[in-house]
Design a protein around this nucleic acid. Structure first.
Length: 114
DNA sequence: CCGATGACCATTT
DNA sequence: AAAATGGCCATCG
């Protein structure tokens, strides 16, 4: 598949690490992850990392949404309904591709991780 | 090498 | 307050 530079791979792995730390029933945003990694302006690259996460480890990408709580990445899943189903399995209510109580369920790594 | 695109976000108008 | 614009950085044609 696509080849990546060692630097990029390092950044990707850091992203995966944070994503894997997200507790069940909680969600976070691309920007929050980028911020935690010290690259608050590189939220787009976090999205790329998630795109590449398919070939990497088992990443709970369904717990990562954009800052408004919308399931923007659901189109990249094997099936467009999988993301929502996975979230609902964890007790997260999804309405019209948006996470309900997103503000309350939001998990900020830079705050929750010491 | 250059221009366009993107699972985004913050600022400006 | 809603909509447009810019920035950011890696990937692709």
């Amino acid at each position: 598949m696509t080849k990546y530079n060692s630097k990029t791979l390092d950044f990707f792995e850091r992203v995966y690490k944070v994503v894997q730390l997200i507790p069940e029933g909680r969600v976070t945003s691309y920007g929050a992850i980028a911020k935690y990694l010290g690259a608050s302006k590189s939220s787009r690259i976090v999205g790329w990392a998630m795109n590449a996460s398919h070939n990497r480890y088992e990443i709970p990408a369904h717990r990562v949404v954009n800052r408004t709580g919308m399931l923007t990445g659901k189109l990249h899943f094997p099936t467009i309904t999988m993301m929502q189903e996975l979230l609902e399995l964890e007790g997260i209510n999804v309405n019209n591709d948006k996470v309900k109580d997103f503000k309350n369920l939001f998990w900020d790594p830079s705050i929750e991780i010491l």
